[in-house]
């Protein structure tokens, strides 16, 4: 435990971007295959970021440098907190802070496209917040602590107690992995400026930082799946792969979902599955545990 307190976060900080980049590469190849294309090489995301990093520094507002840095640092920090076994609620709050910085960067860019992107990113932040809080509350109800390690030490995997929360979590993961919906803050599908939203005014290093932060965030969210299958490494690994594939499929099957539909559908899922799960756990908690 004590060693993990140091090793965990360090490992996360080093490994997460590597895995994140590789996953993005896989994603791009798979998506291309779905659309009968060949797709870029696996390492393309790294090439992209490396190229971005060496571009000329240009910005419409210098504060974006610090805002994007803050975004990257805080996302990495939140991930590291999870790896130390830290307080899940704290992670939720610090993620919200990180995204606030990304949104501020988009606001500061002072262009209509990025402003709309900022609003949509804000929406997605709002959509995701409740389920993350419910997840933290659910973990507390199961283990009596907001820490992440107790969830991993359970004899019975957490999903037995939190199936509804898991479903709701998977649903909002689509949003967090920047998959569907089509017109929310910044999609991977670069068809037009509006869709690139938050990042439409960023370039060079700022954009590279946002990209790396996204890798971190992807791994962070996928690693939250571990909470549901703690203590069962094989099952966790299988589930993470399955979830990731599922997200790619969802992305390609529902390419045109508007933000209104997103808010409604995701909050409905959160309400029915997430809240329902918590309420049932709250009522019968004593019997299960």
């Amino acid at each position: 435990m004590d060693i993990m307190f140091i090793i965990g976060p360090v490992l996360f900080l080093i490994i997460a971007p590597i895995f994140g980049g590789l996953l993005t590469g896989c994603d791009r190849i798979l998506t291309a295959r779905f659309q009968s294309r060949v797709g870029p090489p696996l390492l393309q995301p790294f090439y992209d970021v490396a190229k971005l990093w060496h571009k000329e520094k240009a910005f419409s507002n210098p504060v974006e440098i610090i805002f994007t840095t803050a975004y990257l640092v805080l996302i990495a920090f939140s991930g590291a907190m999870i790896a130390t076994g830290g307080n899940l609620l704290f992670v939720v709050f610090s993620l919200a802070l990180a995204h606030t910085f990304l949104i501020l960067a988009a606001y500061a860019a002072n262009a209509p496209f990025s402003h709309i992107g900022a609003e949509r990113e804000l929406l997605s932040l709002m959509i995701v917040e409740p389920i993350l809080i419910l997840l933290a509350a659910g973990c507390f109800m199961v283990t009596g602590s907001f820490g992440t390690y107790p969830m991993l030490m359970l004899d019975v995997p957490g999903i037995v107690f939190l199936p509804g929360v898991f479903i709701a979590f998977i649903a909002v993961l689509t949003l967090k992995l920047r998959k569907s919906p089509f017109d929310i803050s910044t999609s991977h599908h670069a068809h037009q400026e509006l869709v690139k939203g938050v990042t439409s005014s960023l370039s060079g290093r700022s954009l590279a930082k946002v990209e790396i932060a996204h890798w971190y965030e992807m791994i962070l969210f996928l690693s939250l799946i571990l909470l549901f299958f703690g203590g069962h490494p094989v099952m966790s690994a299988v589930m993470i792969v399955l979830v990731f594939l599922l997200e790619i499929i969802i992305d390609n099957v529902f390419p045109r979902v508007t933000w209104k539909m997103t808010v409604k559908s995701l909050w409905l899922v959160t309400l029915i599955f997430g809240v329902g799960n918590i309420v049932i756990l709250g009522i019968f908690g004593g019997m299960f545990l």
Binding site: K57, F59, S60, N61, P62, I65, A111, P112, F113, S201
Partner: peptide, 9 residues
């Protein structure tokens, strides 16, 4: 760095 005007399509 270079300050550029905001992006307006």
């Amino acid at each position: 760095g270079k300050t550029i005007p905001p992006y307006m399509g």
